[in-house]
Design a protein around this nucleic acid. Structure first.
Lengths: 248, 248
DNA sequence: ATTAAACTTGCATAAACGTGCAGAACGTGC
DNA sequence: GCACGTTCTGCACGTTTATGCAAGTTTAAT
């Protein structure tokens, strides 16, 4: 990846998030923190950001901006924790959903990854970077979930395989396991599960302890559950033997 | 390969990807890095790109979601003319390419359209609007063209049909017809042609009169050719009986 | 006050760079 | 055909840039 390109991505994140962490950037780009600190110093010298201990912030952080940042903050932290489960060379299957979009954005650079997704917006995010392969699952686009589904999609999934499957946008509870809002979604997620070695669920606290009508898979099939530190209902899941990773 | 042709390919990649690597280009073209660096310097001197350590980047690369919006006036005018060929209720197949992206943006609202595309960025554009159905063609994403291709994609196309096919990113000439830069691209476009009633080609003037190595279809198979008012080589195509629409 | 993390600075190395030069390919005029 | 100039290309040389590591300093939190 080009140095200029990397610095452009930092600029993008600064303008969209209002802040960046040197440590986080170094991990994502697969470079030393020294290099990223140099980048931040350079951007600060150009007036693009302001250097602070631990990273950098955008010069003009409006009040509304901070609010928006607060809302998405949980997902970003969860995503940062989730991508640490990935090892170089793996094939990653990513479902649709806003949490999974955050994961796609947080994917570390230059790890020779192959990404499979049925969400066009995730495909677009990853399409811009040349450091990973991308396989798109086709099908009928569902505006509700932002994903492609239907028989074509399920057939395509069945002909592929992945090391890690990031399953998203569902209810997760100890008693009911993972559940979905409609039959088609549930069937697709099951097909994705069948094509993957491990299922990872990154759940915001509003998903935990809730259940939808359609059963996807039992809690015991979850390889890793990534949750926030104060997540409700986590104890019940941990009691079932579901491996939990706590973000932050 | 002609020097001008090589530099045109670099331009294409710059506008589609926003960046090029000197080393990568040298390897792909089978030339020394010195030669490619010379090309990049020349393009930079012409203001087409900006030279950076390791390659070059497109001049004004804003935030990710704002990129690709700097479509030229020519493409927007062509797109506006092209979408007038669409009638309500039709199924539209749209290929990848910056001109076709402009067409996707220009699609009229509330016409009960069904859109089929193999370009994730076009899918993302249309995904946001609720007034049309969207079918995404999956496959292996090719960063070069920004499209999904491969056997899966061709098989999916074969199971669908469309009224109009907007074919993009090719050379168009009276003698050679429509041509593509590689075999896979040509094969996919042929499969798309076979699935469609009519082929529409929207060609910017730099594509007219040029030919690439791989033949896609003869000029006689073009249902409608949309071109600018001062397009060179248009007379030769019109002489062959290709119906032409002139934008503005 | 103590400690760990983040930081700056200097240095070493490898990659990318620009320049000058020479040979090859091509067109032009004699 | 032949001399000439132009353009494109690859190679050799010295220079610049990016990066990681080590050493010492500053910052923030306990």
């Amino acid at each position: 990846m080009l140095t200029a390109q990397r610095q452009q991505l930092i600029k993008d994140e600064l303008s969209s998030q209002g802040r960046v962490y040197a440590r986080d950037l170094a991990q994502r780009f697969g470079l030393s923190e020294d290099t990223l600190r140099r980048d931040l110093r350079k951007l600060a010298a150009a007036g693009i950001c302001q250097r602070v201990y631990g990273g950098a912030v955008a010069p003009d952080a409006g009040p509304l901006h901070q609010r928006h940042q607060h809302l998405s903050d949980e997902k970003q932290r969860l995503a940062a924790a989730a991508v640490q489960l990935i090892t170089p060379g793996q094939t990653i299957l990513i479902d649709a959903g806003s949490t999974n979009t955050a994961i796609a954005r947080a994917l570390p650079a230059d790890m020779d990854l192959t990404l499979i997704t049925n969400a066009p917006d995730i495909a677009t995010i990853v399409a811009g970077r040349g450091d990973m392969r991308l396989i798109v699952l086709g099908g009928v686009f569902d505006p509700q979930t932002g994903a492609c589904m239907g028989p074509t999609t399920r057939a395509e999934v069945a002909s592929l395989r992945a090391d890690l499957f990031f399953l998203g946008s569902c209810g997760v509870s100890a008693a009911q396991g993972v559940t979905a809002f409609d039959a088609e979604t549930a069937a697709l997620k099951q097909a994705m599960h069948a094509a993957s070695d491990q299922v990872v669920i990154v759940a915001t606290s509003d998903k935990l302890g809730t259940a939808a009508p359609f059963r996807v898979l039992p809690a015991a099939d979850i390889a890793t559950l990534v949750i926030g530190e104060d997540a409700p209902g986590a104890a019940a899941l941990a009691a079932l033997g579901v491996p939990c990773v706590t973000a932050l």
